[in-house]
Design a protein around this nucleic acid. Structure first.
Length: 318
DNA sequence: ATTTTTGGTCGTCAATAGAA
DNA sequence: TTCTATTGACGACCAAAAAT
């Protein structure tokens, strides 16, 4: 389906760009009158045989049989073919040219929205969430010594007493985490911390061992809350800010660890980015579909209008 | 009931655009 | 020029539907 969506959006893009640029050419194949395509500000001037002119708004081809046949369909088909076959071309250079980037969905949508107010604008991502004041979400924790933030804006605070608190961006308790207890003594390792949580009240829950420097991070943003324990050397996800420096590393082994860490960070970031991109793409496709519906409706109305005017003109008493 | 097909999501890589 | 964000492409995986 992935492929289908890609193709679909590509086609829509190919189809819609000319439409939004208002460059469609209209021609009546059977009739003698000529329809000139002077799409100025979205208005076409239709010339009738007797020299009369008629102003109509941008007309696009509908799927239904219409009195107006547009040669644009052919052009669109060609354009789609060019792109579609690009994926199978053997020449990598050619392929690269064909696959050259389109503007981002945000850009296209924003362009569209400036063309047509009906198309919702993709707002700049709300950074407020990420910039939420730490103090508000961890206000109930006594003097946190380390505060970590997940990519989803949740906070993990570790107090000087070793207590861990998870909180959402707005300060609400983390879903699914009912209890977090930390034994004040008897930790298995020096500097280690046991994080205990249960999904239900009264649930004995599970215990996680956090050694010194390790960080609990949210591992999934789906329906199921999932968390990962990560050490600074094994990489941190985007949005997780180390409160304490893991210290300088210089040895070759440490260098490879650093490289691994960097890679993990990059992968994590890209994962998030891909998710976001797919979300935006869906939104984009939805908007285009809406736009297609609106324009098709408009087109239908205009065609009917044109038909009516033609009728009037044809039956005009001499 | 089992196998195959279809449709969907996800993670990763790589190319590119745009910002710093 | 370097770094970061974005996104197309690809493959792996899963679940539901269709075919056998």
């Amino acid at each position: 389906m992935h492929v289908k969506i890609v193709k679909f959006s590509t086609e829509l893009y190919t189809i819609l760009r000319p439409i939004t640029m208002e460059t469609a050419t209209i021609e009546e194949a059977s009739a003698t009158e000529k329809v000139t395509s002077e799409m100025n500000e979205g208005v076409s001037v239709v010339s009738l045989p007797d020299g009369q002119t008629l102003q109509v708004h941008g007309v696009i081809q509908t799927t239904q049989p219409s009195v107006i046949q547009s040669p644009q369909i052919q052009n669109v088909q060609e354009a789609v073919d060019t792109r579609g076959s690009g994926t199978t071309t053997s020449d990598p250079q050619k392929r690269r040219e064909i696959l050259s980037r389109r503007p981002s969905y945000r850009k296209i949508l924003n362009e569209l929205s400036s063309d047509a107010p009906a198309v919702p604008k993709i707002e700049e991502e709300e950074r407020v969430e990420e910039e939420a004041p730490v103090t508000s979400s961890v206000a109930t924790v006594t003097a946190p010594s380390s505060i970590y933030q997940t990519s989803s804006g949740q906070y993990i605070a570790i107090t000087q007493g070793g207590a861990i608190q998870l909180a959402g961006p707005g300060g609400e308790a983390l879903q699914g985490v009912q209890a977090l207890t930390l034994p004040s003594s008897g930790t298995p390792q020096p500097g280690a911390t046991i994080l205990q949580y249960g999904a239900q009240p009264g649930d004995p829950g599970q215990q996680l061992l956090l050694t010194a420097g390790q960080v609990l991070v949210q591992a999934a943003t789906g329906d199921m809350p999932a968390y990962q324990i990560r050490s600074p050397s094994s990489g941190l996800p985007p949005g997780v800010v180390m409160a304490a420096s893991p210290g300088a590393m210089h040895s070759p082994q440490q260098n490879t660890e650093e490289a691994t860490r960097k890679r993990e960070v990059r992968l994590m970031k890209n994962r998030e980015a891909a998710r976001e991109c797919r979300r935006k793409k869906k939104e984009y496709v939805k908007c285009l579909e809406n736009r297609v519906a609106v324009l098709e409706n408009q087109n239908k109305t205009l065609i009917e209008e044109l038909k009516a005017l033609k009728d009037i003109y044809c039956h005009k008493p001499e």
